[in-house]
Amino acid sequence: MDVSFNIEDELIKLYRFVKRPTWSPEPYQSKLHKLLVFSFLLVLSLIAGLLLGACIQAIQQFDFFEPTQHEMEKMMYEHPKYYIFLLGVVAAPLLEECIFRGPLLYASKFEKLFPYFFYASVLLFGFVHLSNYQLNTSVLYFAPILVSAQLFTGITFGYIRVKFGLLYSIALHASYNGILFLPFLFFDFS
């Protein structure tokens, strides 16, 4: 079985998609190819999420804005770990992908407007995550930075949704969240 997978080619495809999103599914790819693209997007999203998270930590360290307690931190003290895991790795990906990426199928009927629908879904996905913070003026001022990881993953989740389907975006979202939750499951941060 010939599986052509090249990281540079995949980056170029992703760049072209980001530049001009179109409804362009690739349903006839082999399962191995889909797994390789899935893995590539997962690693890319994790690297971007960790780098953007480090930037947010640096901004907080230098007192550029008033840090507020992240809702996940609060939940860690109020609920058992299995509850947080089920919420973050099962419920959130399922609901958020159906809400934010599911409607892209209907948006595909409007070819010229599809990029606007796509980026609207990315922005809504990103900014709904502002609810993870106690809103104040400085949080609103730094909102694009605070949700930059969600904006980036919104693009990668949307890309895989368009290319391979909604189940792949749910799985990518769940995998991303699951990997980020692993340290919280095995270590006590209290």
Rank of each mutant, 00 (worst) to 15 (best):
R161D: 04
N132V: 09
F38W: 00
P67G: 05
A120D: 01
Y106H: 14
H70Q: 13
V128Y: 15
L46R: 01
P115K: 11
V3Q: 10
V139F: 06
S138F: 04
E10N: 03
N136V: 02
F125S: 09
P144K: 02
A91I: 15
S108H: 09
E73C: 05
E8I: 15
N136C: 02
L42Y: 07
L172P: 06
F181N: 06
F114D: 09
P27E: 04
L52H: 02
Y82M: 14
Q60H: 07
L105F: 12
F38D: 10
V128M: 15
Y106D: 12
Y82N: 07
F127C: 06
F62V: 15
K74A: 11
I84H: 07
L185C: 04
G154N: 08
T22A: 06
N177I: 12
N177F: 13
T153A: 04
L86Q: 12
P103S: 11
F110I: 02
N177Q: 10
A48Q: 09
Y82A: 03
T156S: 08
N136F: 08
E26V: 01
A92I: 13
E73T: 12
G126R: 05
E66M: 05
F62R: 14
G178L: 03
L35E: 07
I84D: 02
D63I: 08
A107H: 11
R20P: 07
M1D: 03
L86Y: 04
I155E: 02
Q57P: 06
I155F: 03
Q57T: 11
E78M: 15
V43F: 08
I59T: 14
G88S: 14
L104I: 12
L95I: 15
G88E: 11
L135M: 12
E111I: 11
N6F: 05
G178V: 03
R20K: 15
Q69N: 10
I155T: 10
L46S: 05
G154K: 10
L180S: 08
M76R: 15
F125G: 07
S169I: 01
V122L: 08
L140S: 05
D188Q: 09
Y159D: 04
R20F: 12
L104N: 12
M1I: 00
W23I: 03
A174E: 11
R20C: 09
P21M: 10
S4G: 02
D2G: 02
S175L: 08
V162N: 03
Y15F: 15
R20V: 08
A174L: 05
A149P: 11
N177E: 14
L113A: 15
Q60R: 14
I155L: 13
D63Q: 14
L135K: 09
S30Q: 09
K81S: 08
L86H: 02
G53M: 13
H33L: 01
I145D: 00
T137P: 06
I160M: 07
F118I: 00
C55A: 13
Y116Q: 11
S121A: 14
I56C: 00
S24M: 11
Y119Q: 04
L104S: 13
V139W: 01
E96R: 04
P183W: 08
F181K: 11
V162Y: 00
Y15R: 15
